[in-house]
Design a protein around this nucleic acid. Sequence first.
DNA 1: CTGTAATCGAGACGGTACGTCCTGTCTTGCG
DNA 2: CGCAAGACAGGACGTACCGTCTCGATTACAG
Lengths: 203, 203, 203, 203
Amino acid sequence: MTTGRRGRARSEQARHAILTATATLLAASGYEQLSVDRIATTAGVGKQTVYRWWPSKSAVIAECLLDGYVLSDLIEPAKSGDARSDVLSWLRALVDFLDDPKNAALFRALAAAASENREVSDRLYQRFSGPLHTSLVECLRAGVRTGRIRDDAPVRAVADVLIGAVLHRALAHIDIPLGTADGIVDALFSGIAVADREAHRSR
Amino acid sequence: MTTGRRGRARSEQARHAILTATATLLAASGYEQLSVDRIATTAGVGKQTVYRWWPSKSAVIAECLLDGYVLSDLIEPAKSGDARSDVLSWLRALVDFLDDPKNAALFRALAAAASENREVSDRLYQRFSGPLHTSLVECLRAGVRTGRIRDDAPVRAVADVLIGAVLHRALAHIDIPLGTADGIVDALFSGIAVADREAHRSR
Amino acid sequence: MTTGRRGRARSEQARHAILTATATLLAASGYEQLSVDRIATTAGVGKQTVYRWWPSKSAVIAECLLDGYVLSDLIEPAKSGDARSDVLSWLRALVDFLDDPKNAALFRALAAAASENREVSDRLYQRFSGPLHTSLVECLRAGVRTGRIRDDAPVRAVADVLIGAVLHRALAHIDIPLGTADGIVDALFSGIAVADREAHRSR
Amino acid sequence: MTTGRRGRARSEQARHAILTATATLLAASGYEQLSVDRIATTAGVGKQTVYRWWPSKSAVIAECLLDGYVLSDLIEPAKSGDARSDVLSWLRALVDFLDDPKNAALFRALAAAASENREVSDRLYQRFSGPLHTSLVECLRAGVRTGRIRDDAPVRAVADVLIGAVLHRALAHIDIPLGTADGIVDALFSGIAVADREAHRSR
DNA sequence: CTGTAATCGAGACGGTACGTCCTGTCTTGCG
DNA sequence: CGCAAGACAGGACGTACCGTCTCGATTACAG
């Protein structure tokens, strides 16, 4: 049984060195300063070896993301059963993470890459937004099961909203006050309308 | 009496040509493809004329934003008095706008520019997110005044959330179903919690 | 009894394909365009198979020369006994050969290879200039024996001159008029001096 | 009165630095080691400035030749009136020049460039072979006028022959014995045929 | 008939140079 | 002095080639 492919196999060592170098340089000097030349030199690799496997700088970053060379520990909501407090503490953790300018800069670099490049955005989504979305949806559905969340709640839209609110501020270079997290969760869970609540109460 | 400056005055024609060319190229080919050389050539202008008045490519984009060469017509919520329907129709209009791939591409190009450059993000905020945020906050406060929205509602956070949710999907190249707008508004106004509402009422 | 070597024998087919491909590419695109990669691909052979048997591109060309893959039919002077007409018709044939741009291009490619590489020039000499020189010298000496050529004629220098004159024009991309051959032979056989001949006689 | 051209004028300083660097590197390390990158770095010039004015490395060398950055002092025949001795001493000087391996290597490098590149060969001819050819032809025609050379001598072919003979040996990495020069001149002036001489003697 | 060893096509590897493009500055001559 | 034109130094891009190094698949002699 063979792979059917001939010739020298791809060097896992080179791949690792490239991704490591990319993550290191990205963290150290940012996206603007990142060049394929520098990646190759730092990794001790020929430039062609980079281009053989990735079509662009962005694609390398995308793979760094997918393989956990950057942002390795995904911040996920806990699952204590209390959906509201789970979501709240997740959101606070995220805001806290982005409070570090280093993390915010990396985050923006990734967003820039994603904006320009379909592949990066796909990978980014596949690795982060997607699982996070799923995770949040599950968290909310658990809340539905325990009777704390309306069973007709638009959980997917809510999950989008939670992620997007943070993204927006991060991209806009706007510092996110910790209170924001509380406000968001309050609004989403309790609602901001008066009339609606009355309507529901009348059941 | 003169301005005190001697020699030929700054050419308004050149300035206009540069900003127009920048907007056109940005919409057509994205941020990464944009170069000062190309801007100057397209505008029929010397490169130095660009650098004489703007310190960088980003600054030109920033001025494009400020002067309405891109995204000229800001989509603002109506002010019918019914905050909920005003917000809903605004959100639907925004989603509809981004449904056109051309608009989505321009949007992403701006996001990329903003991610990489503080100045662009400032101007973007100053011209769009800011006014929009203000506008939404006002809209929500009007709802408070008419008694349709809780007077302790975290209106600023809600405005953030509304903008961010759309941004997230646009950046991620995710098609936004029109129903999303309804879900978001529903969640924000009515809340998704069951027990919380009771708790709030009992206060 | 065997060769004593174990393992798979060298593939004569591969060797032939490589030399053929080299000759073809050299004639078609010149020395500068010739690469080992292209040779191997054209020959349907692994690159290592080239490097296993030849240390360099130049060495392959050298072997092409030695084995008659290029310039296989050496143009030699006839030996009718009349040295002057033998040399003349040889020179005319050579000029005629180089009149074909294809031949001239191959000729220049070989000259380029020889200029840059000692080995190629050695083989080129060993296979062509050398035998030609010898051949011409013999032809001239035959003329001496038949009494048509001075017995103190510097036959080696004359042979050099005959070859070099053509080479010069070919390398310089100068079209060689057929009359050139006649002029050269005339000059070499009859001499161009008037007084000198008297002087020689009186010695 | 103007040139009609706008924009910054070509920098003579840059041109000079490039040609100087090329000549220096060519003499120091040979044609193989010569790279545009190195030329630019050595000259303290952007690589684009090289490519703006010359299409290739060869073309730069060609201009070095034309402008006397290499081989600055063309070896020309003297004009004492005695054509035979003028030609002979010129040929001896040339052979002597090529006796230095450094000069021979440069000579071959130029020949290689000329073989591959039409433009180089044109310039080389324009600067060297051409003037030399003219010079030799004049020298020989002076000989005709003084009655030392036959008035029907094929002077152009003779000039070709004189240049080519040396070129041949230089390209082939063959050391040229000094005696060769004498042999060539002897053959060309006195002729090698016996019959011809007898015919002349019979007057 | 079964190793063992050298070959084969294929193709990835670390490097070097290529020729192009872009940035931000500088220099022309015209208006 | 502004302007269009365009050359300048510098530096990254993505490609081509060099010569080396694995791969798995033959092939041929040795035991």
